[in-house]
Amino acid sequence: MTIDCIIEDTRWDGIDALATRASDAALVHLGYNPDAFEISLLACDDARIAVLNADFRDKETATNVLSWPSDERGAEVDGDTPDAPDLPMDTELGDIAIAFETCTREAQEAGKSMQDHTLHLLVHGTLHLLGYDHERDKDATLMERLEVEILGKLGVCDPYRED
């Protein structure tokens, strides 16, 4: 996987390695060769992601992660697998932005390590770039199951399980 990483917030030290690990794991789990794909990642702060969230989603607040797929791949039927990227033409999957303060706060509130929470959000963002979503019930169930499986292979506990 080629990750074009722009680090606007230096507190994101090491994010490029985590991003490669998370996106590679997601792609391999889905049967893709990670070497065939590229993702752009913006590692920023809450102020920057709040601007992006307002510009693209009309929500004037910070969020943890945003994704912009390069192509519409979502499934037409709720719960179906999204369309596969059209290789060799469709190698740029899209862009992800991740916000430091929100991720840190969420990890602390959930009693999780920052690394594990960041891996979860990067797997989540990568799945969005591949057309997975959580707006409809069956799509959400599918995406959540995939996240849990992928994170399990990375040694990260189920982020949806409440202890």
Rank of each mutant, 00 (worst) to 15 (best):
T2N: 06
T2E: 08
D4T: 13
C5F: 05
T10S: 09
R11F: 07
W12K: 00
D13R: 13
D13P: 06
G14E: 01
G14D: 00
D16N: 13
D16W: 08
L18W: 14
A19H: 05
A22K: 10
D24I: 09
A26C: 02
A26G: 02
A26V: 05
L27R: 09
L27Y: 00
L27N: 09
V28S: 03
H29V: 01
H29I: 03
Y32N: 08
N33A: 11
D35I: 12
E38K: 12
E38R: 13
I39E: 03
L42W: 07
L42F: 08
A47I: 07
A47W: 04
A50I: 06
A50V: 08
V51N: 08
V51A: 14
N53W: 01
N53S: 07
D58G: 01
E60I: 06
T61F: 10
A62N: 04
T63E: 01
V65W: 00
W68V: 08
P69H: 09
D71M: 11
E72A: 15
A75S: 06
A75I: 01
E76Y: 09
V77S: 08
D78K: 06
L87G: 12
P88R: 01
G94Q: 04
G94E: 04
G94S: 09
G94K: 07
D95G: 09
I96L: 03
A99E: 10
C103D: 04
R105S: 15
R105V: 14
A107F: 02
Q108P: 04
G111L: 02
D116C: 11
L122A: 07
V123F: 00
H124E: 12
G125C: 04
L127A: 12
L129V: 05
L130R: 02
L130V: 08
G131P: 02
D133L: 13
K138A: 10
A140E: 14
A140G: 13
T141W: 12
T141M: 15
L142V: 15
L142I: 11
L142S: 07
M143N: 05
M143G: 04
R145Q: 05
E147V: 12
V148L: 12
V148N: 12
E149Y: 03
I150W: 03
G152V: 06
G152D: 02
L154H: 14
G155Q: 03
V156A: 02
V156D: 02
V156S: 02
V156R: 02
C157L: 14
P159M: 12
P159K: 09
R161M: 06
